[in-house]
Design a protein around this nucleic acid. Structure first.
Lengths: 364, 364
DNA sequence: ATGAAAGCGCTAACAG
DNA sequence: CTGTTAGCGCTTTCAT
């Protein structure tokens, strides 16, 4: 009973309002040129019947889906160690919602997942994709290029800064293969520089760096920022961590073993910094009196809860998400590559690098 | 140029393979009864053309979408304070993927968002929904019931204790309104009992409880478990927290003020426990020598990193997610309510309560 | 400004 | 077993 009394169709609304399907369609889609009274009648019918357009039928003809895929590769499960992606997702969700677009979440874990995602993206089920490609050797970017679906990356992809080095390709490059890569990232390098300069400014001189996994551009960029300021301070002041507290702990001990006179540490992220803090305490060193510590991220639940609270480089993660979505949607509203207008006019969106800010708390 | 050379259709494949569309459709959908050689030819054509079925067209006729909505309300942003939802999502994603179903993520934050979600769900865009309704006064469940979309809840919804009071006849309620609520939850109450018993067993007698926000059933159930064992130990041993470290810290101080002789604490979750640990340290009390601490969740990044590592009640969050998806999909494969078979035969899925286990570390 | 009609790409009877 | 034939619900020319 009441087996979904087959939700009302355009046809039903049309009948009820005494107009044609075309007219109802126009009203529903907010098209111009429908006389006031008629439109009103239609709207009433829609309301009375509780009509909701059938998205499948609509997509079938418009070839739009009002849906965006969000692809997150989570090989290390690091994804779930901090609220990073959750925040990013929130930003994305807000922006998509504002544009009545749906968020299709694709989590991947291994080779076959990649194939699956590639197939999905190529399948034309979504209008575009937002992709978090964290690792240098990630096969995802390749798949995505082949899928030819408009994409914005979260974080600078590692495999190529922008348009490939001359894709051998046939003509110059077919099917937008050479479309510049669009990404949204924080100014990791600049932020790192700021962190180190702050340490310098407060009189520290023997500053160590706990790097992140160097197969991720964010870690590389932060290390580069450190080097920008410290020059060749000596490789013994740099230890690679893995963005985890345990890794930070280990790294700090190593640093201390190498340089017992260490007086400051810049960790590539807050989690690692929290581990460093622990290791410092364990060795009986006071923070910041003996050793100053600066983190990166300003992940509130971490940075504010450490003891002492963490001085860190803040990046607005939610905003990054929002921006990614915005760039993608903006791109979708434009002439897609292919129906090229003369020149590069109406060029697609460009990558964005968001500024960071140093947040001073007690650790440095 | 090469403007999406309009991906090949069934028709194209049929032509290429020299068969009818129907046959191709059969092959593609793995239907029985297509002679080997023909099927082979079709498959080849599919491969050569890189054919991918148009989901919209398919949905239009099948009225299935192979998509499930995951609704997460995140009023307190608590959502992002711990990896809880991320893990749940992972479990869900895995299960959905295994069934070729897509995950549409709906994040909500306020009143209007609710309306939007209600509309979406009622719009018949997805085959079912997985909903995290954490709060007692959440309007979501009502919307969902009205949307008449198959749903499985994450955590026992607060507004109606599931199938509880002898589900009355169907007569009394039309349109599946009375379909027993299906949810997946951990045995919060049992887990809490185990935690407290462990404390008792190790000789503690003045055991306090840092409760979670009592508008969430998980918090209520854990409190109930505490009471089951402690009886009316006196309300001064119970303080309400909010699942955050800060709240836990505050709560512990309060507890200590009321009962300076406190010798153990059971916190409603690990985050609160970590706050308690900090407060304890601050007061110069040793853990577990002076005060033993037990948490709940076994959120690894938290429980393993505290000092000392946390003894806690483990719940398998990822498994909960997987199970939710499984129950939903299973329900979808059955006769939907309405085409009722005689009796309650082929009854929909039933709620599941997963067991918890006590993980002993150093804090208790 | 409105309506009529032609599909979008696919599945599902129904024939053969 | 395979092909033919209707639509699914909607948008979109094209007439009117």
């Amino acid at each position: 009973m009441s087996e979904t009394a087959s939700r009302p169709t355009l046809e039903a609304v049309a009948a009820r309002a005494g107009v044609s399907r075309a007219t109802v369609s126009r009203v529903v889609n907010g098209a111009e040129g429908v006389r006031k009274p008629l439109a009103e009648r239609v709207r009433r019918a829609v309301a009375e019947l509780g009509y909701v357009p059938n998205q499948a039928a609509r997509s079938l003809v418009t070839k739009r889906h009002d849906a965006v895929a969000v692809v997150i590769a989570e090989p290390e499960t690091r994804v779930f160690a901090d609220p990073f992606f959750a925040l990013q997702l929130r930003g994305i969700s807000k922006e998509l919602t504002a544009h009545d677009a749906q968020l299709v979440l694709l989590l991947t874990e291994g080779r076959e997942d990649h194939a699956r995602v590639g197939r999905y993206l190529a399948g034309g089920h979504v209008d575009g994709a937002l992709v978090f490609s964290l690792h240098l050797d990630d096969p995802l970017p390749g798949l995505i290029r082949r899928a030819e679906v408009p994409t914005v990356f979260g974080g600078r992809p590692g495999w190529s800064d922008g348009p490939q080095p001359g894709a051998p390709g046939r003509e110059p490059d077919p099917a937008g293969a050479g479309r510049a890569v669009v990404y949204v990232d924080s100014d990791n390098r600049g932020g790192a520089r700021e962190a180190v300069r702050h340490l310098l400014r407060t009189g520290r001189t023997r500053i160590g760096h706990i790097a992140g996994p160097l197969d991720q551009t964010s870690a590389v960029d932060r290390l580069d920022g450190f080097r920008d300021v410290m020059g060749d301070a000596g490789p013994e002041l740099i230890v690679q961590g893995d963005f985890t507290p345990a890794g930070g702990e280990r790294a700090l001990r190593e640093l201390l073993d190498r340089r017992p006179d260490l007086d400051a540490v810049f960790a590539a992220n807050d989690l690692a910094a929290s581990g460093a803090l622990r290791a410092l305490r364990e060795r009986g060193l006071r923070v910041p009196e003996d050793v100053a510590v600066v983190g990166f991220d300003d992940m509130l639940p971490v940075a504010e809860q450490t003891d002492p609270p963490l001085t860190t480089v803040r990046q607005d993660i939610e905003e990054m998400g929002r921006l990614m979505a915005r760039l993608l949607l903006r791109g979708l509203d434009r002439p897609q590559p292919g129906e090229h207008t003369g020149e590069d006019a109406g060029d697609g969106p460009r990558s964005v690098v968001l500024p960071t800010t140093l947040v001073r708390r007690a650790s440095a």
